[in-house]
Design a binder for these strands. Structure first.
Lengths: 358, 358
DNA sequence: ATGAAAGCGCTAACAC
DNA sequence: GTGTTAGCGCTTTCAT
């Protein structure tokens, strides 16, 4: 394995020159720089990570805490991981993973052993037990998610409150006046995961503002849970013509359950989702998409900014973007019951050529 | 941050003594050892990872290459990750993640920068393009999966060939003589992912041996794909009474499709799955379970063994274990058609109290 | 059973 | 614009 000394010899310069060529921390003449790069390539040189960390106090590694417990929707977690790793590599960093259940100890170890330059913590809950500890960390930290009290912490997330409002506004704009919200499993609310609570809040406020009748239901990710939720919603509000779904795991069974109950989407009922883009696309759903890639990227950038001593905004709330697809349409004329209205509307709004599908 | 020098001072010993207490590489008197541990705790000392790596040539880090491309069933990937991380922590190692699409470059970087002591590579394909490169790696490496030619490589996986055979034997033992195999999406076979090919092979051989009529179908993870596969299978073999499913993503729609076609499980058709335990349990399926936890654990242990200079077996094939649940039963008396046989059989084999369900 | 001290391979003063 | 060299915090000879 080539060392910096070998490169220096090969390029006929000193080791510091090689080091400075690599770090760019002092001007090097075009000529020597090229010569050095040439030698680096020739020898396949890569700096020893440990030595570098020891000398520079930088590991070029991020620690990423990921949740593994049930209740989280795994594909989304993976999207975050993927986004963080990808961005990290773009800025020449690697990613060390910790599982959430290592708890504070994992974070502590990473800090004390200088295993990473910064931490990125996923799945932060409203009243996360780790918050006090996170505030005491010396290592720069970025939270993906938003606790109730975020003071002293750097957070990034989709603005779920705005997302909820955006969904309801979309339906209200289309003339819907009676809307249901199907949310996360009950346990998620109990854990007070930020996004679930916030979406509900955003939807509720918007409903009040827009004078829309609203009913809300948590929903377990099982066929029974879905049927239950649909029954409840339609039972309480037979005239409901709009539905907001914030639960990735139940999109498919939900659509099936509606079909079973004789409600066609979007003719009888308009559906708006909050979730990952691929799901929304697959089911042709109007949706506020969870920008996992953007969030992961921002998290890395916020970490880098802290490492660069820049002043970083404590809160980064990404504005929701709603993409209109085939699952929502203006409210049709019927009023009192759910009897399907067929005909023109159906023809007009069925799957059309040119619609994006996965 | 406390350093080894601080600990030494605090315990009134030399730094080398502290180091040896930690590594156990030379005998230390009970007394001083306790004193040193006391100081370590008092100061919250943790050795600096970089310094340690530099001096000892050990990072206490594993690199884990994970796939992110479509076609892999994400929850299973996560189970592997979880298993590897958990086991790694048990032997005081951390895990650095690389994505598969970093390719050889990522592995090369990890090796040259001395970022990790060993690599664990998931999702290895039959004719994986990385194989030649993997063979040249100096860093100890363990593959999760099994390429066609595994010489010079350390691999661990479920014995998928045996698993396929085990499933068919189970059905044959129950008297089924006409069986279908629903496998992975077509693209997976094209990629020649090891497990897909091997299961098919194992099932095919066993069918020949047991004199069972067999038809095989790849299956895309879409409702249409499933319906297509079921139609094909039942169409080609109307008397089919057994089904082997090796495709996590389609279990649910498959069961639904069978129901739609009027085939009850297990009365009309016995279903055996190969897949993660939680899925099998959720649908009460007789199954050969994918021992993700065990595989991840073994991968780590194989890596550790290599680091300890032990001679390790090049191939570790985990024996399939079949768990019988409610989805399979002896073939009933009917012969020619799929007309359901109800009555005694139904009562006897429907969900019973005491059946494990998720 | 314990200490002293020579590196490990790099970065970043400090020189010029 | 480039070179020299003192550390960074450990591990591990070599001594005793």
């Amino acid at each position: 394995m080539a060392k910096i000394k070998d490169v220096a010899k090969h390029a006929n310069v000193s080791v510091s020159t090689v080091s400075y060529v690599l770090s760019g921390k002092r001007p090097i003449s075009q000529e020597t720089r090229e010569r050095v790069y040439e030698s680096i390539r020739a020898l396949g040189y890569q700096p020893h990570a440990g030595a570098r960390a020891l000398a520079s106090k930088r590991t070029n590694v991020f620690a990423l805490v990921m949740p593994l417990h049930s209740g989280v929707y795994v594909p989304v977690v993976m999207q975050f991981v993927s986004a963080v790793v990808t961005r990290a590599r773009e800025v020449d960093h690697d990613v060390l993973i910790l599982t959430k259940d290592e708890g504070e100890e994992g974070l502590h170890r990473v800090q004390e052993r200088s295993l990473a330059d910064a931490m990125i913590v996923m799945d932060v809950e409203m009243h996360d037990a780790r918050l006090p500890f996170l505030r005491t960390l010396q290592t720069p930290t970025v939270l993906i998610g938003f606790p109730e009290k975020a003071d002293g912490l750097i957070c990034v997330d989709l603005d779920f409150t705005a997302a909820g409002a955006r969904c309801l506004d979309h339906l209200a704009d289309l003339g819907h006046t009676c809307v249901g919200l199907i949310g996360s499993p009950y346990v998620v609310y109990q854990r007070e995961t930020g996004f679930a609570t916030r979406v509900a809040e955003g939807v509720r406020n918007a409903a009040r503002r827009r004078n829309v009748r609203l009913t809300t239901h948590p929903c377990d990710p099982t066929p029974e849970g879905v049927r239950q939720a649909v029954s409840d919603l339609l039972g309480q509000q037979p005239g409901m013509t709009g539905l907001i779904v914030h639960n990735e795991a139940i999109i498919e069974p939900l659509l099936a359950a509606l079909r079973e109950r004789g409600r066609q989407v979007p003719q009888d009922i308009s559906v708006v989702a909050i979730g990952p883009a691929d799901l929304a696309r697959r089911f042709d759903l109007t949706a506020v998409e969870l920008p996992t890639h953007e969030i992961g990227r921002r998290a890395v950038d916020l970490a880098m900014a802290q490492l660069a001593e820049a002043t970083v905004p404590p809160a980064t709330l990404l504005e929701p973007r709603l993409t209109v697809r085939g699952s929502s349409q203006p409210r049709t004329s019927t009023r009192l019951t759910g009897r399907p209205v067929v005909g023109a509307a159906l023809t007009k709004t069925g799957p059309q050529p040119g619609l994006r599908r996965r």
